[in-house]
């Protein structure tokens, strides 16, 4: 049988248990909402505006750099699995693969994109 059936069962049970726990809290807990209690928490000060506002774009740069290296690492996994059976040439191919991307990291670094400014 397909191994993913077990993973699917884990996902299903992993959803059932927290839903059950939260439902238990919903059933046994008191429900007395009022506007003050439901207002957004901002250390006791009246909340100013919405939270859904523009944030620092720097986060976006880091996700972009991450995306490239994530894909790179995923490419390297099959290489790593087979490495023991292949000779030195496979290692050299891997080194070339990583070296090309290290150029990208150095470029990003030199451009000052890795600074939190």
């Amino acid at each position: 049988m397909n191994e993913w059936i077990y993973v699917a069962l884990f996902i299903i049970v992993g959803l059932i248990i927290p839903i059950g726990a939260i439902l238990a809290g919903f059933i046994f807990g008191p429900k007395k909402p009022n506007p003050v209690k439901q207002s957004t928490y901002e250390c006791g000060i009246e909340p100013v505006g919405e939270a859904w506002m523009q944030f620092k774009a720097q986060y976006y740069i880091f996700v972009l750099v991450f995306l490239v290296f994530d894909v790179e690492a995923v490419f390297l996994f099959p290489w790593a699995v087979k490495l023991g059976h292949l000779g030195l040439y496979a290692v050299i191919e891997g080194i070339i693969f990583v070296a090309i991307l290290v150029v990208g990291l150095v470029y990003t670094w030199r451009k000052g994109m890795l600074e939190w400014a």
Partner: peptide, 9 residues
């Protein structure tokens, strides 16, 4: 479990 589950408005 017996705590009130508040949801921000």
């Amino acid at each position: 479990i017996i705590k009130e589950d508040t949801t921000p408005g």
